[in-house]
Amino acid sequence: MLARSAQGLYWMGRYLERAQRLCVLLGLQAEALVDRPVREIYFGWSRIYDSVNRHPPGDSLELFDNDEFILADSYTLADDLTFERANPDSVWSCFALGRENARQMRHCISAEMWTRLNLAYLRIQKLDMETIWRTSPESFYAETAAEIDTFAGVAASTMYRDDGWQFMQLGCFIERAQLLASLLLAQLSADTPVGDTAVQEDSDAEWASLLRACHAFEAYHRRYGVEVQPGQALDLLVTDRLLPNSLGRAIDMAATELAAIGSAPDTRSGEAAQRLAGRMGDLVHYDWPDRAAPEDREACLQQLSDYCRELHNLVTAAYFDYPVDHLS
């Protein structure tokens, strides 16, 4: 297919995945505002910003143990992450960019996919933070996440499985892997101080909320029981092949799509991308450090996060922006 069309679908996949993940995280954060301790709320905000590699407005979060401050701050942060047009990582920006890519590539996707996305866009376009804050921010995030899920379902049942589909899926899985790696790294860095019981309890609650953010809470219960232990939660979120949102599964799926797309005009980059995807899979499934070595785990996650970026660059070079002299 046309390289620019493939790139548009790849980015559509990435942006919608990012919007979806943000909605889930923000929905949990909106719930936390009702009854969670201040530290957890502040950590929740910084975890979301870290996951998209971004600083909050004013560059850092200041911790005030005061309900009024928490609510005022949270409103500003939620607005920045939800409707702020100038923030390229807000829900609005990600959704609008995903929809814009779809608009430009409408001829490559099914009519049902476009209509679904456009209807959601028209709905969100009419809303603002004040409106959703007054009623139920959780509902807004849940509805928007559900709309993106519905879009994915409509895509799965209507889109022709050509390379357009594969590039869209590849974008979605690379984004998922990258976001999850960043999210886990943010959580691990917050876990560092040990020995403080209160902090430990907060940390367990944060891991529980992280499991929920990844739709992994029920899976965790079935595999490890009701008590959330950070080490086990991390294992599940990184290595589980059956969990739709695990890092390992996202990497496996990205590798599968890459293999299905096949050889690239820039052969070297194309082969390097395939090898890297294989290496990432090995890291997760065979070389993942055990619980006794938390620092190695963090280093491994950092490595995976870097690899995600590298994989994106290789895919771009191999299939989209290859130099003309690679044309054969």
Binding site: M1, L2, R4, S5, D163, F167, P265, Y322, L327, S328
Partner: peptide, 24 residues
Amino acid sequence: AELVEGRDLLVSNGFVYMRTTAGR
């Protein structure tokens, strides 16, 4: 048909080609 912009096309050896994910 493919929907192309000028930047997707190139002229080489007297013919016009488009850049695809499988080469020109």
